[in-house]
């Protein structure tokens, strides 16, 4: 009973659900990025990795699990956002920061929504639209040659970086990790990871347009 109340009916429980799913998604992003970086090693490397994944018997269960984590993160995150809005029905005339907010923290819900939109487009372009058996590498690089798409992609990756810049240290705080010795380290690691993911994913179209399209 307490556990249900915790995950559904309590403010701290809900945000710990968001934090936990967020951390799991960071794990997914890490593996996804390392796989995607194979693009830089040319079509063979990347396509064989893609085919290996597509043929893997655990792909479907993993995708279901991943979807569940994503959906939980999104639903709980939006839920928390709407509640937070309801907690202040009358807005302030003047909104001035006290100095605690960061660009990442202040834009969390916007970067979250943007990442969600990107995610839907990404699933459509890379999963639904991609014809099985053809080179996913070619498919991806071709998409990057469409300027508006690439611009949106880059924009989304900046958003993702921002989202993570707050998300990682925030998750630590949410699970109660705040310590004069470790918190500064967590903040640095969080920042480096956020930049790493942003740059890591962001480098793909840039490489594709400069080096990849020449291959």
């Amino acid at each position: 009973m307490r556990l249900i109340k915790y995950a559904v009916g309590s403010s701290i429980g809900r945000k710990q659900v968001v934090a936990l799913t967020g951390l799991l998604l960071v794990g997914f992003l890490a593996s996804h990025l390392s796989g995607n970086l194979l693009i830089l090693f040319g079509p063979e490397a990347f396509d064989s990795y893609a085919e290996f994944l597509a043929a893997h018997p655990l792909l479907i269960p993993a995708e279901i699990g991943l979807a569940a984590v994503f959906i939980t993160h999104i639903v709980w995150g939006l839920w928390v956002s709407f509640q937070n809005r309801a907690a202040r029905p009358d807005r302030y005339e003047v909104n001035e920061n006290e100095g605690g907010r960061t660009p990442g923290s202040a834009t969390m819900k916007y970067t979250g929504v943007m990442t969600l939109i990107y995610l839907l487009i990404h699933i459509y372009t890379m999963k639904i639209q991609h014809v099985a058996g053809t080179s996913l590498w070619n498919h991806a690089v071709n998409w990057f040659e469409i300027a508006p798409y690439t611009l949106f992609y880059l924009f989304a990756m900046v958003g993702l970086g921002l989202h993570l810049s707050h998300g990682l240290k925030s998750a630590a705080q949410t699970f109660g990790i705040n310590h004069p010795r470790y918190t500064p380290v967590i903040e640095i690691v969080g920042f480096v990871l956020a930049v790493g993911f942003g740059v890591g994913f962001g480098i793909l179209p840039i490489w594709s347009l400069t080096v990849g399209s020449q291959l």
Partner: peptide
Amino acid sequence: GFGNCTNEYECMK
């Protein structure tokens, strides 16, 4: 009816 903490630390400031 208070909101949820999103660790923005405006409170501390």
